[in-house]
């Protein structure tokens, strides 16, 4: 069997003295949308940051298209073809919308053109000259997703893209994720809102205390709703 696009094995991560990830294992196949579910503090965001090399210390193995990312610098990790949309969105206040959009480096051919991004998110075109942080929360999220679609990265890490947003914006972001999946992008999604995740994802990994404790294919989600509720404490 061919190696999956992203293969994480025995991933450990630390912030100073505190050991946050304790041997995380999961796979993401090419073209899949996969979610990481779990309570606050389970290690979902840390897993994302570990893939990007943004934690102070990590160990284990993260293989992406055959390349080992543990030990690699974040800029080189990005250049292997991974786009990162952080939880806090990471819109730069000293840059306008266009500058924010153009900031991430192109890493491969096949990214969306600026015109295509403007078609997906018309607000970004209207507000091209506004200061990045003057946008509404929803517009900032669109900018944060839009700018990594431009780069040609084929694996997108989206950390809670719907957090704190109005339902109509959540729907728009859902449509966008389905659209980019249809275009062949692969998405690893951290979500608190598993009802939203269920409308998009192929598989769900459940995290607890810095480990993956279960994997639920989306088709089994309804049947295993009770188990999931128990995991997430909702």
């Amino acid at each position: 069997m061919a190696e999956p696009m992203l293969q994480v094995r025995d991933l450990n991560a630390w912030y100073g003295e505190s050991h946050v990830l304790h041997g995380v294992d999961f796979d993401v196949g090419e073209g899949e949308v996969v979610t990481l579910l779990g309570r606050n503090g389970a290690g979902k965001t840390t897993t994302m940051k570990s893939i990007m090399g943004l934690v102070p210390r990590r160990a284990g193995s993260i293989r992406f298209r055959g390349a080992e990312l543990v030990g690699m610098r974040p800029d080189l990790i990005a250049r292997t073809g991974i786009g990162f949309c952080p939880e806090e969105r990471g819109i730069f206040a000293s840059l306008d919308v266009t500058e924010n959009l153009m900031l991430p480096r192109e890493v491969a051919p096949g990214g969306l053109s600026v015109a295509e991004i403007h078609t997906l998110f018309p607000n970004l075109k209207e507000r091209a000259r506004s200061q990045g942080t003057k946008l509404s929360g929803g517009e900032q999220q669109m900018l944060a997703i839009g700018r990594i679609l431009r780069t040609g990265a084929k694996l997108l890490l989206l950390d809670e893209p719907t957090e704190g947003l109005a339902p109509v914006i959540v729907q728009q972001i859902g449509r966008t994720i389905r659209e980019i999946k249809a275009r062949g992008f692969t998405v690893l999604l951290v979500e608190q809102n598993f009802r939203f995740a269920a409308t998009l994802a192929d598989r769900h990994y459940v995290m607890e205390h810095g480990r993956i404790i279960d994997m639920i294919p989306n088709a089994e989600l309804e049947a295993r709703m009770d188990t999931l509720h128990e995991y997430l404490g909702v």
Binding site: D75, I77, F84, L103, R105, T151
Partner: peptide, 12 residues
């Protein structure tokens, strides 16, 4: 200047 880590994660 605002967030060097994130800029690096964008391939810079």
């Amino acid at each position: 200047t605002e967030n060097a880590k994130l800029v690096q994660a964008f391939g810079v």
